[in-house]
Write a protein that binds this DNA or RNA. Sequence first.
DNA 1: TTGAAAGCGCTAACAG
DNA 2: CTGTTAGCGCTTTCAA
Lengths: 346, 346
Amino acid sequence: MKVTITDVAKKANVSKSTVSRIMNGNFDQNTEETVNRVLKVIEELDYRPNALARSLKLTKTNVIGIVLSNLQNPFWASVLEGAEEACQSHGYNLMICNSNNNGEIEKEHLRSFEMKQIDGLMINPTSKNLDTYKKMVDNDFPFISINRKIYGLDAHVITVDNVKGAKMATTHLIRQGRRKIAIFLYQVEGISPRLERLQGYKLALIENGIDIDPSLILMVDEKKGEIAKAVQKVFSADNIPDAIFSTSSMMTLEILEGISQTKYNIPKDVALIGYDETVWSKHLFPPLSTIWQPAFEMGGLAAKKLIEMIETKKPKEVLPKVISLDPQLIKRESCGEAQKGGVVLE
Amino acid sequence: MKVTITDVAKKANVSKSTVSRIMNGNFDQNTEETVNRVLKVIEELDYRPNALARSLKLTKTNVIGIVLSNLQNPFWASVLEGAEEACQSHGYNLMICNSNNNGEIEKEHLRSFEMKQIDGLMINPTSKNLDTYKKMVDNDFPFISINRKIYGLDAHVITVDNVKGAKMATTHLIRQGRRKIAIFLYQVEGISPRLERLQGYKLALIENGIDIDPSLILMVDEKKGEIAKAVQKVFSADNIPDAIFSTSSMMTLEILEGISQTKYNIPKDVALIGYDETVWSKHLFPPLSTIWQPAFEMGGLAAKKLIEMIETKKPKEVLPKVISLDPQLIKRESCGEAQKGGVVLE
DNA sequence: TTGAAAGCGCTAACAG
DNA sequence: CTGTTAGCGCTTTCAA
């Protein structure tokens, strides 16, 4: 049924080796006449080499695995697109799976990927399978972490500078005259962007001589409705914030909704800035200030680096191990100063 | 280096066949003693079968390919998540690629997928490679089209009823008292959802005794800025619409922006309804009425159907060939009637 | 310049 | 109940 290299060889009256050579572009090892004849047969038979057999022999699949945790978040959709584009242009295919931030599921996926003999792995790690990550790195398996650092493991990682981003956001609020700045965070759980955004927030306050008020640090569960609760709580407390720093784009929408159910007004009573610029940020009411992250670029860089690690066969020698990209502040009306003409990059 | 079935066999003092049988769960073909011994060695050696070798032998990879065109669009992100989840729960891996709606790129991806011996394909087809799709279907290769029908090809397809959705949207506008309803569409180019949404729009008008005004049918290029131009054009023409039906979520944001630059007000002067409910719809100003589509479900169903086609080995006998899911109307303030309490499903 | 043969790691008759 | 063997489709030495 399917046409194999043997079929081509027979029809062209040559051996499989010859076909193989020609398929792989070693034209100068054969007479022009044979080359043309074989090429013609390949065309006629519409022969496509079985990548499985080839990979088995070469122990190289040209497949890269990527495990992400939330494609609803446009940040990750962009990362994926960036990674896909880079893979494609370098001749690799992408095998994707979704961990949903669940360590068990992640572990299974990694196992499955390994059996499928992927050439390398890009991951937004749950951070719950340190031993597994470590084994890969130790075994010189090409591995790169995207967005999250893995504490206690000297792995390749590419992130956006979260301390910087959070500092920019918080500082912007301070410059707009706000002092009682609340931060909304998902439970930190040792996840580096969360830790670092909190740190950036604190640094900005300290640098500006503002005391850190623990009641303004809102750690919420990722469960539905938790954010609304937190908003309600903070606005019925003694110390009502005059600004909110939301550390995730999905969270921001819920905060907006929560605030709309209070008597407080954005930005008059409370300024709001969100992490992650999105297509909808500027269309919110009021238009939302955000921290933009180079997501597409990050995905692309991660893929390129991984491919370099794969192709040099010396993952550990591909430097630098840590790449940290720069975020940007996008100022809009939600922080209190109507920017005529819309966006202002700092 | 890597541990193979031979290593396990040697260490357990059995043949490869025995190990293979046990790996595949045929426990009753061996004495309990052997089974345990082999299992123990497998564990000790941390043996993971090479899926490449297995697939080569079995001509079955448990890999499904998916080609999409735009992950930025949350609709597709949801489809992908749905598909991924179904694959995962049925023991399949997903290989993903992005055609960017480009026929050439799509063709290359399909070729690459074929060589990688994927078991089946889900695709949002560009519709530019009819011959390729046809060959797959004719060869009994498991193939399913998502969201777009492929005219002239009797392939499996799963869509959301676009005529119905567009009719619901348009009818809603009419019921709100609007008569001069404009529709914004990307160039149709034989793409079924676009054709059908236009058709649904027309049907609604006809059923309500409203003449179709060609000047209110705005076909725009997918290039940046084209929508803004179209908005400007329509609002400086003689026949200014009192409602707009936007047929894509990204488009809607641009229309909103365009309108904000006119003197017209939503919903007072012009009502707006968008295709595709998104996380941000209800946070726009004013909150946007939309047509919701079961994207996650569609992805999941497509994957399950494909898997059935794969596993029965009789793709053509898996019925029905065409699945059409139902959209829903979500009413919000952008169409002119403030809905207290927010969402109202019809 | 070309071919024969071995082997990548696995499965599945078939035989015992 | 278990082992021997052939072979999936390819690449690559080695020899001619």
